[in-house]
Structure formats: C-alpha cells, structure tokens
Design a protein around this nucleic acid. Sequence first.
DNA 1: CTTATTCTATACCTATAAGTACAGAATAAA
DNA 2: TTTATTCTGTACTTATAGGTATAGAATAAG
Lengths: 191, 191
Amino acid sequence: MARPRSFDPDDVLEIARQVFWQKGFQATSLDEITAASGIAKPSLYAAFGDKHALFLRVLDRYHDGILGWAERVLAQPGPAREAIRQWLTGFIPYCSGEKGQRGCLSINSATDGSLDQAALRKSIERYNRRLEELLRSRLRADRDQFRKGFDPDVTAHTVMVVHAGLMALAHQTPDSKQVMAVIDQVMSLLA
Amino acid sequence: MARPRSFDPDDVLEIARQVFWQKGFQATSLDEITAASGIAKPSLYAAFGDKHALFLRVLDRYHDGILGWAERVLAQPGPAREAIRQWLTGFIPYCSGEKGQRGCLSINSATDGSLDQAALRKSIERYNRRLEELLRSRLRADRDQFRKGFDPDVTAHTVMVVHAGLMALAHQTPDSKQVMAVIDQVMSLLA
DNA sequence: CTTATTCTATACCTATAAGTACAGAATAAA
DNA sequence: TTTATTCTGTACTTATAGGTATAGAATAAG
C-alpha cells in the first residue's frame, strides 16, 4: 500500500562488504558506499540503521558465508586431516597473491582497536567459537584416526591460530607455495 | 642559540605508542595524544611531522624494541626449540588475559586496510623479514638438533604464522593455558 | 642587558563525514 | 483517479579532527 523499496538489501550488503573489506570500517565513508551502490544515504539509514549497524549486518553475513562453507567442507567423508587441509587451503586465494591484500574481514575487524563495540566483539567471538567447534567436533569424531594421546581440543585451537596467522600475514601477499608448505607442516600435527 | 625543546621526543613517542596501540591509528586523534602527553599540536608537528609520520616513528620504535628482545632471546645457548619457545611465550601477556585486548601493534596495523601507505607497509615488511630471518638462522645453525629432512626455512615461517595468529586472536583474550598448549603443540614440530 | 632565534600555546581554518529535514516520486488500496 | 503511505534524492546541519597562523615565552650569544 505504498512505494516499494527499489533495491535488494542483500545486493547492497554485498557491495558494502566489498568496500568495507578493502578499506576497513573507519576508513570507509558512507559516501563511498552510496557511490558504489547507487543508494542514497537516507535509504541506507532506513534499511540498515547507522554505520555500525550496517557493518554488523555485513560482518554477520560474511561470517554466515564462511561458516556455511566450513560446514560443507568439514562434513566430507574420508580422513579428518584431508578435510581440514582442504578447509585451510580454501583460504589461500585470500592470503596470498593478488587478493591477499585483503585477508579476512573478520580478523581485520578483530584487530581494529576502534571497533571495540560490544555487538561487534560478540559477533566475532561467536563466529570464532562456532568455527572452532566445527573443527573440534570433526577431530573428536575421527579420534581413532590419530595417535594415542592426540588432543582434538588443543589441535582445533591450533588450527584456528594457524588460520588467523595466515590471514593476518596475508597483507604481505606471501607466495602461495609458502602458505601451502606451512599448511602441510601443520597438518603433520594431525597424526 | 635559541629556546631548547621542553620535552624528550622519546617520551612522547612512548606515550603516543600507548594511545595508538589501544585505539588504532585511525581512531586516535591528535588531540588525544596532546592530552596524554601534554604537548601541543604545533610542537608535535615541528618534532615529528604529520600524523602518519608520527605513527611511522612510533611503529619503527616498537619494531626495534621487539627485534632487540628477539635477538637476545634467540641468541641463547642450548636447544633452539627452547629459545624459540621462550620467544613465543614472551608474547603471552600481550595475547591473553587483561592486556590481551591489545595484541601486537604491528599486526593490528598490518590488518588495517586504511594504512595502505607505502612507508608503513615497508616498515612492517622489513620487521617481519628481520624477525623471520632471526628464527631461520637460529634453526639453520642448530640444524643437527633436528630429525633428518627438517626444513628450517618452512619452520621459521610456520613459527611466524603461529605468532601472528596468537596475536590476531589476542583480542578475544583467550586463556593463557590454552595459548601455552598451542605453543607446546607447535614446538613438537621442532624435532 | 639586549637581541636573534627557536620553541610553545591559543585560537583558528578547513575539510570531511555522519546523520537528517524536507520536498517530491512511486505505488497499492479505495 | 484519488489518496494515503512509504521510499528516494538533494541539500543541509553539525561535529570532529587534521593542520596552521600568530603572538608571546624562553634561551644562548654578544
């Protein structure tokens, strides 16, 4: 019974993600998002709220995407080590070569001291917790594939640390072969 | 033959480091630095140049501090593994517990998309290169302590990745015991 | 003591960016 | 077609923050 919205909010979130991912939260102005999306500020505010709320939506959406993909990859049959190796290698395009500059939106945000906002911290914590939970349950389920004394909980966290490290060092765009060698070496812990 | 400077530049850099470290480059205003240091803006500009130049000085100073400490720790006699373990555990106060929120100034800066400035990237790259070089040369020197086929170059990079990961995840303030467990597990690669 | 010179502090300028008022456009119901 | 309602776009307000002009303070040389 009134004028309908002229844009798909998800399209705008996708565009906003690209801009935020490239420049970071602080350095991204709403004018850049309006320019990239073609949507004027009042429409953005009506649809998403202020800049923090928009970023939170973008980040949640990003998290959901990675979690969904991780669920699929880690549910694969076969050795747990190969599933986890595949999960880690899936990030190579984002932590080496041309796209490497960007790294991980979540980790970039986590290390941004200016984003000390309760809602954002919570989103990032929840994401990390769920990701680690996926790794841990897979390692626990396949416990008998590993040596005696293998600790799936510590190993899950170690894999999280390695993942975070690769993404944090992504901004130097290391060689993908070097990344692969590190992953191979770490995977030797899963034995 | 004129009025001398009323402050020690190094003191100001130390204070600026604290503020930048806590809030990040973008979110730190020069007014906050003047408030924390008691030095007015014109004096800061005369001594250090603009905000980017000041931050670069702060970051270089931070890098030098860590590199100097790393040189000392990694020059220790005894097993290379123990020297490297000690180096990693030295970061625990900054990646767990109360101070964990801060993480590493260099990594926080590296993941900040808004700091895509040539000079800053160069400083960070040089720092990472020198740090990895310290690890690599120690591992190479003690090569005969390790199994056949041990690769000191890949291992040095793996240690760098783990270090970066611990610091990137610092903002969730994990338990120091969990950090210790990860370090122990990774150290098992140095055998 | 005078003076040249450099530093310091107040106050200001300017640009940018977050957020909004308001008028006009578009649509569904009557 | 009319009308109520919601969306869109221009233009504005306001605050903040980087950077600086300028006047006055402090010091070493003469």
